[in-house]
Nucleic acid binder design. Structure first.
Lengths: 163, 163
DNA sequence: TCAAAATTGTTATGACTTATAACTAAATGA
DNA sequence: TCATTTAGTTATAAGTCATAACAATTTTGA
């Protein structure tokens, strides 16, 4: 049973739902279903590192963009500023990052990863890559690239985000 | 500025984040970003019909699978049963669906769409398709099919859902 | 047959996520 | 200078999602 064709079928006595013709034709529906799989897997993958999706993303972004401001990070991650505070708090409390003063702007903090932060990001990323590989092993690399290109195209058009 | 290459660049005096090398290499990251775009758009698209993503999905599934039970729908939508109750309540209160008794099982309800429900589903679906078209217009149909096929492949492998 | 187990839908509730309003401190700029 | 804007924060509300427990019913198997 590779693809769903019928909307309903019978096994013995019980009716089993097989999706919906209409929804099956919607791109966003497939996007959501695939997203669910990735999200559940990612959650489990990050659990050993005591990271959530957002804290992981923030950590990696800080590692690769030293000196980043919270507001910039919030904007990049499409997260509201107040919510970014607690994410940063979490990472700072675990001493994975530091809030350093910015000489040119005393309101702002420059975010920097500590050595522990960089190491954790590295380890977590390896785990995430491994798990992605497991999910994607049936999709050849060039297909993956093609899909990513399509997704990026969609985002840059529909999202209005120039980044 | 179509694609991000550098992680950080300077415009005038302010540092601007351009994503992250590491995250950019992750399939799930692109999936999530594209998903955000779709989700925000869908939310706006369904607002005039006073439907949310889940109520829309449930309504369409009921329209196309008459007689469906709540638990079957919950399973198909990957939603917990208690949460399905409120979704069904909402649709029933608006008289878009009915909970009909099942002669063979007095515990269960057979879900059926009313005429109003079918009409609303139809109108909403047209709107959703239109909005998807706008988001996807830069992606040629065969690319879309290819992406959907890849997403389905991922789901059937990683998700474990035979459905 | 009939008691135990499982299932359907439900209620109540709590955890977690995300959004909004309002505030302080600092920077900007007319 | 003084009004306006911005960075970060606090408090809080709204929204989403998951868990436990329950009544009614069906199924199971001893």
């Amino acid at each position: 049973m590779t693809r769903a064709q019928k909307t309903v079928s019978n096994i013995g006595d019980t009716v089993i739902v097989h999706e919906s013709e209409t929804l099956d034709q919607l791109f966003g529906y497939h996007l959501k279903r695939a997203m669910n799989v990735f999200q559940m897997d990612l959650k489990q993958t990050l659990k050993p590192f005591d990271l959530r999706m957002l804290t992981y993303t923030a950590l990696v972004m800080i590692v690769e963009n030293p000196g980043l401001r919270q507001s910039q990070l919030a904007h990049a991650m499409e997260v509201e500023r107040p919510n970014m505070v607690v994410i940063i708090d979490t990472l700072e409390n675990r001493e994975l990052i530091t809030r350093d003063p910015v000489v040119t702007d005393r309101r702002a903090y420059a975010l920097n990863a500590t050595l522990a932060g960089r190491r954790l990001a590295e380890k977590a990323t390896i785990a995430v890559r491994t798990h992605e590989e497991r999910l994607l092993h049936a999709v050849p690399p060039e297909r993956r690239e093609s899909v990513i290109a399509a997704l990026t195209l969609i985002r840059t058009i529909g999202g209005g985000e120039t980044t």
